[in-house]
Simulated assay, not measured.
Amino acid sequence: MPVVHIEVRRQYSPAEEQALIESVHAALVCSLQIPEHDRIVRLSVHPPERFACPTDKVQPERFTLISIDLFSGRSPAAKRKLYSELAQRLAVLGIPPDHLLVRLREIPREDWGIKGLSAVDIDLGFEVEV
């Protein structure tokens, strides 16, 4: 049950925004093996003057920050696959891989509340340790 926040520095069309959200979610499904229906993905568009990015970017308007909160337990291999999938899928949308920064925040299951219960006390329907 990853919770994703995509932050960008330019306005996209509604179709482009949907493609961006879908691409990020598809990368999560492929690399972390979460169920297709398990999606919480937010997109925030910031005016460039309110979102500084590294000054060496050739297309700074394309700089994209993706923050992902997820259960602890994914293997380094699954995380590497996630980074690769994100870079490949977003490159198709015009976001150069060197303009992408992904930040994972692993949170123990006991620190997630789902349906009024601790995540350790429910069947998630998928494996976390992939």
Rank of each mutant, 00 (worst) to 15 (best):
G94P: 03
S13K: 06
R9G: 04
L28C: 13
V130C: 09
L90G: 00
W112L: 02
S118H: 02
G94D: 02
A91E: 15
M1Y: 12
L32M: 11
L100G: 03
S118L: 08
E127L: 08
S67R: 14
I66V: 15
D38H: 11
R50H: 13
A15F: 00
L65D: 00
I34L: 01
Q59K: 13
V128S: 05
P48Y: 05
A52V: 09
F126H: 07
V3F: 12
L43N: 05
L28V: 03
R103M: 12
F71C: 11
V41Q: 08
L117D: 10
I66C: 02
I34V: 15
P35R: 10
C30T: 14
S23W: 12
L70A: 10
D111L: 10
E106N: 03
S75T: 15
S23K: 06
L100I: 09
P48V: 08
V29A: 02
D69R: 14
D123C: 07
G94I: 02
G125I: 04
Q11P: 00
A78L: 10
P76D: 11
L86T: 02
P60N: 01
L104M: 12
E127V: 06
Q88Y: 05
I95Y: 01
I107W: 08
D69C: 01
G113W: 03
R10E: 13
H25A: 06
R103A: 13
